[in-house]
Nucleic acid binder design. Structure first.
Length: 198
DNA sequence: CATGGGATTGACT
DNA sequence: GTCAATCCCATGC
């Protein structure tokens, strides 16, 4: 099961889905990029929003898989997750970085003059570059405005390295961050295994 | 009803 | 390296 266009792709444990998304193409409108960094979150560990149970905020996260969970971070940024596992289990993959592929001019105008390599090199950056906002919370990833597709034919497969998750204070020791060591688009700081591989 | 804390980023020293 | 911006929502009184 490696085709994200099939619903069963998302109805799996989050630790399987998170690495499988590396190399796939994320699209919104005429903008899109190759997913090069993800993180897994699960209700059993305290860094996950769903750890506290069902609230208005966590309804999407705990609901059926295969939809987008978009929330506001630090009052400023929108962060994109894909919901995984079964209905009733709070688990999702945070999309942390892309390598820009399509609609680069549009991304540049939305991102205000940063270097091309920084257009999507962070979870808040990529939502801005793709024009993803909070209204897309709950959108299906099949037949909706957001699409995730398998790697294009001939694309080099991701070199997957893992590390601790970024920017959290709880359960940061879990190695649930997945990066493509072959990409320069990964957000800082790079995991130790990735620095060693370069 | 008041308060506090982020799954971040960009500007500045 | 430090730090402020900014707002939703969970929590506590």
């Amino acid at each position: 099961m490696s085709d994200p266009r099939r619903a069963a792709f998302y109805a799996r444990p989050v630790l399987e889905v998170a690495p499988d998304l590396l190399g796939c193409t994320l699209r919104h409108g005429r903008t899109g990029g190759r997913i090069v960094e993800t993180e897994a979150y699960h209700e059993d560990e305290p860094a996950c929003h769903a750890h506290i149970g069902l609230t208005p905020r966590t309804r999407t996260l705990i609901g059926p898989p295969g939809v987008a969970y978009v929330y506001r971070s630090y009052g400023i940024h929108a962060l994109l997750n894909v919901v995984t596992d079964h209905d009733g289990v709070g688990a999702a993959v945070l999309i942390r970085a892309l390598e820009p592929l399509e609609g680069i001019e549009t991304m540049r105008s939305r991102r205000g003059g940063v270097r091309d390599r920084d257009l999507c090199s962070g979870p808040g950056k990529l939502t801005q570059a793709l024009g993803l906002w909070l209204e897309l919370n709950g959108s299906p990833l099949e037949g909706g405005p957001i699409a995730i597709e398998p790697p294009p034919p001939g694309a080099s497969p991701p070199v997957i390295v893992t590390g601790g998750r970024i920017g959290i204070t709880k359960a940061a020791e879990l190695p649930w961050r997945y990066c493509d060591a072959g990409s320069t688009g990964v957000s800082r700081p790079w995991p130790a295994a990735m620095r060693a591989a370069r």
